[in-house]
């Protein structure tokens, strides 16, 4: 049976198609500018971690998290920076760190946890570390936080 008709992009014939870009406000930064910013933050994260300031390091990444389809390079750098923090935090310190984040940052952290789980094996992701963080974050922010990760189109 000829199934080639299934490969036709029918959306191309719909003039009123809802574009992905219309669903959320774009990241105001230029991709190159965001990449520079994330590299600086990566440095700031290292100095925070040297001072044992987990919350400061987390906030630095989460509050400037790049999103949108044009930010691929900056996203990788920010994920690496975040993984450095997650991997170097002791399990007993996670609940306190998660609690002191703002609700926005908690939601963004959940996005990174799922992104990390989707990319295990690269960018220093470690499944067992991610699952520990996921458990502690869900205890604080609830299932609503996971729902927001699923609905939010501003993917990190």
């Amino acid at each position: 049976m000829d199934v080639n008709f299934r490969k036709i992009d029918i959306d191309a014939f719909d003039e009123e198609i809802l574009q992905e870009s219309e669903l959320y406000e774009q990241d105001p930064r230029d991709p190159a500018q965001a990449l520079d910013e994330m590299k600086q933050i990566q440095g700031a994260v290292r100095s925070c971690l040297a001072k044992n300031d987990t919350v400061g390091a987390l906030s630095a990444v989460l509050e400037h998290a790049p999103y949108g389809p044009t930010m691929e390079d900056a996203k990788i750098v920010s994920l690496q920076a975040l993984m450095t923090i997650l991997n170097s935090t002791k399990a007993t310190e996670i609940p306190a760190a998660v609690k002191s984040l703002s609700q926005d940052s908690q939601d963004t952290l959940m996005k990174y946890l799922y992104k990390g789980m989707a990319m295990t094996g690269s960018a220093d992701t470690n499944a067992s570390v991610l699952l520990t963080w996921h458990e502690k974050l869900t205890e604080v922010a609830g299932t609503g936080c996971i729902v927001r990760t699923m609905t939010d189109r501003r993917t990190v």
Binding site: Q103, A141, T143, G144, V147
Partner: peptide, 10 residues
């Protein structure tokens, strides 16, 4: 706009 983010399902 006041936003209440809930910890539960929608």
């Amino acid at each position: 706009v006041h936003i209440i983010r809930m910890s539960t399902l929608p």
